[in-house]
Amino acid sequence: MGTSLTPDFWERFAVLLVLAVGLTVVLTAAVDGLAVRLLRRRYPETLPRSPHRTVRKDHRTSVHC
């Protein structure tokens, strides 16, 4: 004995599917934003910045390895 899936079922299914996808996207973005904020607070600029090397105009680059 099988049951047929009515148009009412498919309408509710589509609405619930769209709501679930929307909620997932919103919650993922919120959690991702919080994680980035916490990581920035915990590790502020831990990478050392490399000093900018000045190039002398009278120095030529060697072509031999």
Rank of each mutant, 00 (worst) to 15 (best):
V25E: 10
R41L: 12
G22A: 00
A14C: 08
A29C: 03
L38P: 00
P7A: 05
L47H: 09
T24K: 07
H52Q: 10
T46C: 11
L5Q: 03
R49I: 03
P51Y: 00
E11T: 10
P44G: 02
V36Q: 15
A20I: 04
V31Q: 07
A29Y: 02
L16E: 09
R41F: 07
V25H: 09
P44W: 01
D32L: 15
V31K: 05
P48I: 05
P48M: 04
R42W: 03
D58C: 00
P48C: 04
R12K: 09
L5E: 04
D58L: 00
E11P: 01
L23V: 07
S50D: 06
V55T: 06
D8M: 06
G33C: 00
H52T: 10
A14K: 09
L27R: 14
L16P: 00
L23A: 15
Y43C: 01
T54S: 13
T46R: 15
V21T: 08
L38E: 09
F9K: 01
D32W: 09
L23E: 02
T61N: 07
L38R: 11
A35C: 05
W10E: 07
R49N: 02
D32E: 13
W10P: 00
L47E: 15
T24Q: 08
V55N: 02
R42M: 02
R60G: 03
R41A: 14
S50N: 04
T28P: 01
G33K: 01
P48D: 12
A30E: 08
V18F: 12
G33H: 04
L27V: 15
P44Q: 03
A29L: 14
L17P: 00
L19V: 08
S50G: 07
V15A: 11
T61M: 08
T54N: 10
R41C: 01
L47Y: 07
V18N: 07
H52S: 12
T61D: 12
R42D: 00
V15W: 05
R49D: 03
P44K: 02
